[in-house]
Amino acid sequence: MTVTSPSSGLHDPRSAAGRAGDKIFSGTALTAGIVILAILAFVAVYLVVESIPALTAGEGELSHGKTSFWSYVWPMMIGTVIASAIALLIATPVSIGVALFISHYAPKRVSQAFGYVIDLLAAIPSVVYGAWGMAFLGPLLVPIYAWLSENAGWIPLFSGGYSQTGRTLFTASVVLAVMILPIITSLCREIFVQTPKLHEEAALALGATRWEMIKMSVLPFARAGIVSAIMLGLGRALGETMAVTLVLSPGALSANIINVGNQTIPSEIALNFPEAFGMRQHELIAAGLVLFVITLAVNMIARWIVSRHKEFSGAN
């Protein structure tokens, strides 16, 4: 019984076509990597060259009489990180839950439809999320802010009054959480369903409950993927422009997240870039560079976490 015809490249290790194919394939894959590096080098050079004037500017040269670039960008760095952190805190548990629901809890027939719906939600443009947050979510949260301000005012986060319009950093964070939820969910779900069936069945056969099975086989297997998914979500949250721009009433840095104030870097760029000129433009691009560095740092931390759990990855 011949399995294949001998002329098939598929099963003949010595065929010239096969070897050439291998070379060509690995070559193109390598080229693609090089192309990415080249693009990035261009972007990096562009960013750095455009930011240098702002980074090196002394007192008096910057717009609005700011003393140094760092005193300008520092409050916004904090604002960006806080907004994204709150968004992640809200979105991560919920999206892992949703992903688990779709992959392991929902009836097979409907789970695919749910997955599809979640994917679609990632497609809603951020302008729409922004408009929704501005018109619907903000006013909805005002009573909660009033309550928090009254009953939890001793916590610095809620002290010092609350916004009548709901256009606060916290509202912006909630909108960001809603935006990144589909992204994290979608990737987590894909990872969860890739869990080897054997592991799952082995756990169940030993008498594990469904949750124990998930804890023992699914989550360890998916850990790297979850971190990766969260980081993609975080990347979106950090860089999100339009939604924050529409939802937040920016102002000076303050610990109070339920009143107007605070600002994120992308929103600052989007709001001011159109009218910017000369030094102001360099300042904003330099702020973009800072955002870039923040994202990079966050990603490196994530990579480090993932690398500590490499043994769970299928390809290793």
């Binding site: 990415i36 972007v43 562009y46 691009i285 560095v293 990579r303």
Partner: peptide
């Protein structure tokens, strides 16, 4: 490969407006 991974991570952090400005400049 580590460089690629690293720089792909960097790329996820490019603010979208910067990508636009870069393309326009290029």
């Amino acid at each position: 490969s580590r460089a690629i991974t690293f720089f792909v991570d960097v790329m996820t952090g490019i603010p979208s407006i910067v990508a636009g400005l870069f393309a326009a400049g290029l």
